[in-house]
Nucleic acid binder design. Sequence first.
DNA 1: CTTGACCTTGGATTAGACTCAAAGGTTATA
DNA 2: TATAACCTTTGAGTCTAATCCAAGGTCAAG
Lengths: 144, 144
Amino acid sequence: MYRIGELAQRYQVKTDTLRFYDKQGLLTPLSRSASGYRIYTESDADRLRFILIAKETGFSLNDIAELLSIELDKANWACADVKAVVDSKLDNLTAKIAQLSNFKNALQRLSDACCGGPESAAHCSILENLESTEAAIRFEKRSH
Amino acid sequence: MYRIGELAQRYQVKTDTLRFYDKQGLLTPLSRSASGYRIYTESDADRLRFILIAKETGFSLNDIAELLSIELDKANWACADVKAVVDSKLDNLTAKIAQLSNFKNALQRLSDACCGGPESAAHCSILENLESTEAAIRFEKRSH
DNA sequence: CTTGACCTTGGATTAGACTCAAAGGTTATA
DNA sequence: TATAACCTTTGAGTCTAATCCAAGGTCAAG
């Protein structure tokens, strides 16, 4: 059982942020004290940890809310619905990873092409090395 | 040789956006017409294509500018400098991909755990399935 | 009984990336 | 030669996401 300030300090966020997450339905403590103070449990802490990590991974708060809405009342979801939501996020992630990998490969080619010495970089062309990437991405898009 | 409107239409961006990219130094046409119109070449088009793709891949305009600054006057860069810039971006990408993959694995586990039928989703726990991911991410961070 | 943590509501801020307005000059075509 | 569609500049406005702050009030611990 933590009060807002304790939880905030533990995870290095502002109390304002926690109140904001509450308002957004991302992290609503189960109960309040008699005087209205938010009371966070260990499972709220888990949830917060998840939020912070997901955020760092690049999910927006909206995405995260969608993912967490499953957790909130699992019993009222059908297994198939959960699978659908999750699989959709999975597709996004897969596409994103592919895109990043393409870009990474292109940069890798560029890096490899550079000798790394004090010589002029006249032959290090980003645009040149990225061409095949672009083609790959364009192809991928058509296939969706 | 395109005028701003032609290039804009070709890549489905606003002319305003192209002027903005010009102002930001991201895409500055080599020359102007006698009357001051921006004149874009095919290589500017390549550059724009690169910008659009990089943007979609999640790079900020600042990142992109940094990458493209190499192209602009390659001759004045040492090979080693190019390598340094590029390798830094590569590191970012590698980390990002790892993070996304972790998350993806966790979601995959969740999806697998869901039977996908009309049954209650009481046992589909995102938080549960993400625990190992969190551990992995935390570990990764410490090692930097 | 003071001080600091908490509460609420409502508005301000920040960053990034545009997007528009105003006032005018240019070019293609009927 | 008119007129629409294009272009120029400067400077300001918009939008979203995610906070962050302020004012005015309540609560808890020493």
